[in-house]
Amino acid sequence: MIGKTLWERQLHQRGSASALAVTEDRVVLHERHTRLVCLDRHDCSVRWDVPIGTWPRAVVVAGDRCLVLPQDTDQLFCLDLTAGSVVWRAGLPQYSGHVVATAETVVVGGWRGYTPMSAFDLKDGRPLWRTRRRMATVLPLPWDGGVLLGDGSEAWLIDPRDGRELDRWRLPESLVETDGHPAFTMIGPDRCLVPCGLRSVVSIRLSSGLVERFFRHDADLSSSAAQFTGGVVWLRERGAGYLAIDPEDGSVLWNVDVRQPLVGEVVRDSEGFVVAGAGGLLFRLRSDGHVLERSSSVTRVAALRDLGAGEMLMVTKGTLRMIAIDPYRRGE
């Protein structure tokens, strides 16, 4: 077996990786349609359990705060991560989406271009700024004290405290629309990858302002961000497996094709990596992409979450599992 289940939590709804946040000692997740629950990461004991609304568009942990944006309330809730109590709440326009947080600021809005963007003080919820018009952006990314946004063929960096533009990049193709999922991938303090068009990924640099072609494929890529795990950039092919890419020169290191669609994320282990098929199979990969082992998880898998230290979370059709990855035993 690739791993053993340390604990399992019934969600009583479809599992979603976007309604989940993890810290060193806590797991915060949405379950039972209207509840937000904080679990002890190590033994699954409940720290708190509060009503919060249906199907949140975002669950984000920032320091000792937990930010939640339910779909049915048009309000952003800021909870105390220790107790689950509401610290502050802010009313938002209908259909608001996207929530990102820096050390002091929460930036909200821009999902599908439905609403303006606005910012609040993380500590007390005080409004800081709001755009005059509706605007569109992919899911923003905190970067070097700023917040990176993107739409169409442009990406730009803003100051989260006042909304002022700090930098802007012109992209060779339009950004891939990833809806509420990540679009940008940091692979260094000064470098970020951006999916453009159906088959390309470009690199933008903060210090120099350079935009460079990182990778061009001969088939369509999935509408999702690259993943940077174990020193390797991972790109998902549409309806297929993963490509492992050298982060320095954009060359293909290997192709992971197990004859079934794979779900995100790629997880590290002592031998290399672990990936999951949507049908429930787990695959252990050697550091060169060769499949060493496969095992069934019994149920359909929606996503994996790499926690490091030989542990991962598995989101299934209706449960959340904490799994310890067993060391690979050659010859068994």
Results as ranks from 00 to 15, higher is better:
residue 257 D to K: 04
residue 210 L to E: 15
residue 239 G to F: 08
residue 169 W to P: 02
residue 151 D to E: 13
residue 245 I to H: 01
residue 186 M to S: 14
residue 230 G to D: 08
residue 239 G to K: 09
residue 155 A to R: 05
residue 204 I to G: 02
residue 229 T to Q: 12
residue 253 L to T: 04
residue 205 R to E: 12
residue 223 S to N: 15
residue 217 H to D: 14
residue 249 D to T: 07
residue 164 R to L: 12
residue 147 V to L: 10
residue 255 N to P: 00
residue 156 W to V: 03
residue 261 P to L: 13
residue 241 G to R: 00
residue 145 G to V: 10
residue 157 L to Q: 02
residue 155 A to C: 14
residue 188 G to K: 11
residue 241 G to W: 01
residue 176 V to W: 02
residue 196 C to G: 06
residue 262 L to G: 05
residue 187 I to P: 00
residue 219 A to Y: 11
residue 232 V to R: 03
residue 239 G to L: 11
residue 184 F to G: 05
residue 232 V to S: 03
residue 220 D to H: 14
residue 192 C to R: 02
residue 153 S to I: 04
residue 215 F to G: 04
residue 146 G to S: 09
residue 146 G to C: 09
residue 261 P to N: 11
residue 229 T to C: 14
residue 154 E to F: 00
residue 205 R to W: 06
residue 170 R to V: 10
residue 151 D to C: 11
residue 162 D to A: 09
residue 225 A to N: 13
residue 185 T to Q: 14
residue 250 G to M: 07
residue 151 D to L: 00
residue 163 G to Y: 08
residue 149 L to T: 02
residue 228 F to P: 02
residue 181 H to V: 11
residue 199 R to D: 10
residue 214 F to S: 01
residue 164 R to F: 09
residue 196 C to I: 12
residue 247 P to A: 09
residue 163 G to M: 09
residue 260 Q to F: 06
residue 201 V to C: 04
residue 153 S to Y: 00
residue 190 D to K: 11
residue 237 E to T: 07
residue 184 F to L: 07
residue 253 L to C: 06
residue 178 T to V: 10
residue 223 S to R: 15
residue 218 D to F: 10
residue 149 L to S: 01
residue 246 D to V: 10
residue 260 Q to L: 12
residue 157 L to K: 02
residue 243 L to S: 06
residue 160 P to L: 08
residue 162 D to G: 08
residue 257 D to F: 06
residue 210 L to W: 14
residue 206 L to M: 10
residue 233 V to D: 05
residue 237 E to W: 06
residue 173 E to M: 02
residue 187 I to Q: 07
residue 149 L to P: 06
residue 222 S to I: 02
residue 260 Q to G: 07
residue 197 G to P: 02
residue 248 E to Y: 13
residue 176 V to H: 05
residue 258 V to R: 07
residue 241 G to A: 09
residue 155 A to L: 03
residue 229 T to M: 12
residue 212 E to Y: 03
residue 190 D to I: 07
residue 225 A to M: 12
residue 246 D to T: 09
